[in-house]
């Protein structure tokens, strides 16, 4: 293990300066990807660490001009417990509530989850269906990218050297909307999605007026399924319509085989996850209080 340098800036500006000054420096927030990766021998700890877990003002969860503003340092525990998130951005609460174990959720952050850019990350698909934007800041200033534009591939983001994620802005779903995120898991805790799906369904006058579906762990990054979305629009959200939409996700699903599942198994299961996510989203849109996390309510492990 490297002896390394540990830096703990007191402000965001200082953090950005340290990042710029130290070539190859890595941010550490909760460390549940960065430090755990080194324990598992996947990599060594970077020579210089810039610890941001105590930076003030970056862990907020608040409504701003009708949108949800979440700081990069908000933990999954805080997101899962936020009444604001549970009420209007329910799919995100479904996702944060199933990350790791209670100990993981207490230290692991939203910013770390997004920056780690795993195709199996839990918060990605919900943020995609809500059309979230990610704020990146460097010494030169800040910019905003749609969350889908943040990921360049497995483990890679489009953030420039010296840039960090400061927060996420999530537009409010239209009235009459419901959302859900579910995953296939082998174990209730300390688990990562085999595959997963998020859905946002808006219902007006008995029919689906808008729908978004995003898929986890079936492509190099989180992807939307335009075919599934198209199959729902204008239809009544009946079991048949939902099953037909779920069967359409294969347009976007190009899974790989790995230790957690074969490509064929992932293809079969992504349809099931999409069906469950759309079903729960439609039920929530109709006012039904389906408990969070939806994964445990609709057929997950216990």
């Amino acid at each position: 293990m490297t002896r390394g340098t540990y830096l703990e800036p007191a402000s965001l500006d200082e953090a950005l300066r340290l990042l710029a000054e130290h070539d190859g420096a890595a941010l550490v927030a909760g460390g549940t990807d960065l430090v755990v990766g080194t324990r598992q021998g996947k990599r060594t700890l970077p020579e210089t660490l810039v610890a941001i877990h105590r930076l003030p003002g970056l862990d907020g969860i608040a409504e701003e001009d009708g949108a949800l503003a979440i700081g990069a340092l908000a933990t999954h525990d805080a997101i899962e417990r936020s009444e604001l998130v549970r009420g209007r951005w329910t799919a995100l609460a479904d996702a944060s509530a199933i990350v790791g174990s209670p100990a993981t959720r207490h230290v692991a952050t939203l910013g770390g989850n997004l920056a780690n850019a795993s195709p199996a990350m839990e918060t990605g698909a919900p943020l995609v269906v809500f059309g979230a934007e990610v704020e990146l800041r460097g010494q030169g200033g800040s910019r905003t990218v749609p969350v889908e534009g943040l990921w360049a591939g497995p483990g890679r983001t489009t953030a420039a050297a010296g840039e960090m994620i400061t927060g996420v802005r999530v537009p409010a779903p239209a009235d009459g909307s419901g959302s859900a995120y579910v995953r296939l898991e082998y174990r209730r805790a300390m688990e990562i999605a085999v595959v997963g799906a998020a859905a946002l369904v808006t219902i007006g006058a008995g029919a689906v007026s808008d729908a978004r579906v995003a898929l986890t762990a079936v492509a190099p990054t989180i992807v939307r399924s335009p075919a599934a979305e198209g199959a729902l629009r204008g239809r009544e959200p009946t079991a048949e319509a939902i099953a037909a939409a779920a069967a359409a996700v294969h347009d976007a699903a190009t899974p790989i085989s790995d230790v957690r599942g074969s490509d064929a198994y992932r293809r079969a299961m992504i349809e099931v996850m999409a069906r469950r996510a759309i079903d729960v989203a439609a039920r929530r849109a109709a006012g039904e209080a389906v408990p969070i996390p939806a994964t445990m309510t609709v057929g997950g492990t216990r």
């Binding site: 540990y6 550490v28 549940t32 610890a51 100990a103 993981t104």
Partner: peptide, 20 residues
């Protein structure tokens, strides 16, 4: 498992300096 500020943390995977 230990508590840091009352919250459970897997201490095997947590940097000691972050608990300063």
């Amino acid at each position: 498992m230990v508590l840091v500020d009352g919250r459970p943390v897997n201490s095997c995977s947590y940097l000691a300096l972050q608990a300063d």
